[in-house]
Amino acid sequence: MSGAFPTLPSTLAFEVIDLGLIAYQAAWDAQKEHHARVAAGGRPTLLLAEHPAVLTLGRKAAAGDNIVVTREYLAAQQIGVYQIERGGDVTYHGPGQLVMYAIFPVGRKVRDFLRLLEEATLKALAALNLRDTRPNPGYAGIYVPDREINGLSRHQKIASIGVAIKRHVALHGVGLNVSTNLDHFDLIVPCGLTDTQMTSIEREYQWRGLGEAPGMDAVKSAVAEAFAETFRNYDWTLPALPFQTLPIQPIPSAGGPA
């Protein structure tokens, strides 16, 4: 439902809609509906959602090679698999993960848009007392400091980013692990990154002795406020250019969602 974030300014250029816990297909259909409206000149929309356990395959993952269990096992666990239009490889969505679908005009400002998604997520995490999060120069996503696991230093990824652009408007967005069942990431090589372990707000609070982790409602409010601040001066203009589809791959290193 919309209207659940009373601290947001009334002049906000985009609407925030909380879909709650919703089947992946239903949320995908909602994205397409809002996308068509925004591409026709309607008000941009940030959809917030949780999903039952599901794997999604981006354009780099057509063969599903980074799923490390059989499809029969996934079916027995009632975990669906969807081939979707975003860039990147395989990722997991499930209860306790907040997915932010930013149905925003982008045009050709793809790199800038991805950086703003990162910035909004970083601001939300800082507001939730995780102030040492960072983007990765080589890959789209948000990380906390590396951690030694079984004698090996592993990157710790707390949020994944994967976007597609159609008719100059974005689909998909950011998956932020709040209290996600992190064991489910063992079903895949997340985003195809073999040196990366997934973490969550809940796990980071436990590791750092920060007490009780914020619940989903608090995280949603922090995210909505962070997006409002980050996109305050955004150019919402839709370019009058021929329609095209641009799959978004990880951002190249200077010198990145999945």
Rank of each mutant, 00 (worst) to 15 (best):
Phe227Arg: 08
His34Ala: 04
Glu212Cys: 03
Asn136Tyr: 07
Phe104Thr: 06
Asp195Asn: 05
Pro190Trp: 02
Val38Ile: 11
Leu21His: 01
Leu116Arg: 07
Thr194Glu: 12
Thr237Ser: 15
Ser160Phe: 05
Leu241Met: 07
Asp65Asn: 07
Glu225Asn: 12
Pro242His: 09
Glu204Asp: 11
Ser2Pro: 15
Glu119Leu: 00
Ala140Asp: 09
Phe113Val: 02
Ile188Thr: 09
Leu182Gly: 00
Gly141Glu: 01
Gly94Ser: 10
Gly107Pro: 00
Tyr205Glu: 15
Tyr82Glu: 13
Gly94Tyr: 07
Ala102Leu: 12
Arg208Tyr: 03
Ala124Tyr: 11
Val16Ala: 07
Thr70Tyr: 01
Asn233Gln: 04
Pro95Phe: 10
Ile103Leu: 13
Gly94Cys: 13
Asn150Arg: 08
Leu116Met: 15
Arg131Ser: 13
Gly107Asp: 00
Pro52Ala: 08
Ile17Pro: 09
Val69Gln: 12
Ala75Glu: 05
Glu15Leu: 04
Asp65Phe: 04
Gly80Arg: 15
Val99Phe: 12
Gln206Lys: 13
Thr199Ala: 06
Thr196Phe: 03
Gly80Lys: 15
Asp235Val: 12
Leu125Gln: 06
Arg115Gln: 15
Leu246Arg: 10
Gly42Phe: 03
Asp146Leu: 08
Gln83Pro: 02
Val90Phe: 05
Ala164Thr: 12
Gly41Gln: 04
Ala213Gly: 14
Pro137Trp: 00
Asn181Thr: 12
Asp132Gly: 11
Ile84Gly: 10
Met198Tyr: 04
Gln97Met: 05
Leu130Cys: 03
Val169Asn: 07
Glu148Thr: 02
Phe185Ala: 06
Gln249Arg: 13
Ala224Tyr: 08
Thr45Ala: 10
Gly151Val: 02
His35Phe: 01
Leu171Ser: 09
Ala126Phe: 02
Gly209Tyr: 01
Gly192Ser: 13
Ile79Val: 01
Ala224Thr: 09
His34Arg: 15
Pro242Met: 01
Arg147Met: 10
Leu117Ser: 12
Arg147Gln: 08
Val163Tyr: 14
Ser160Ala: 15
Pro242Ser: 03
Asp89Ser: 09
Ala26Met: 08
Phe14Pro: 14
Arg115Glu: 15
Lys166Val: 08
Leu130Pro: 08
Gly138Tyr: 05
Gln156Pro: 00
Val178Gln: 10
Trp236Cys: 13
Ala228Phe: 04
Gln197Asn: 13
Leu128Gly: 01
Gly141Asn: 01
Thr245Cys: 05
Lys220Tyr: 08
Gln197Thr: 07
Asn136Cys: 03
Gln249Asn: 10
Tyr92Gly: 15
Ala76Trp: 00
Ala224Trp: 03
Lys157Arg: 11
Arg134Gln: 06
Tyr205Gly: 15
His172Ser: 13
Val90Thr: 14
Asn66Gln: 01
Pro137Val: 02
Lys123Tyr: 05
Gly3Cys: 01
Pro239Thr: 01
Lys60Cys: 06
Val110Arg: 05
Leu187Gln: 11
Val223Arg: 03
Pro135Lys: 01
Ala124Pro: 03
Glu212Leu: 11
Ser2Leu: 12
Lys166Cys: 04
Pro135Val: 03
Ser10Ile: 03
His168Pro: 03
Ala127Lys: 13
Lys157Met: 10
Pro214Trp: 00
Asp235Gly: 14
Thr45His: 07
Trp28His: 09
Met216Glu: 00
Ala254Val: 15
Met198Asn: 05
Asp89Gln: 04
Ser153Gly: 02
Val169Asp: 11
Ile248Gly: 12
Pro242Arg: 11
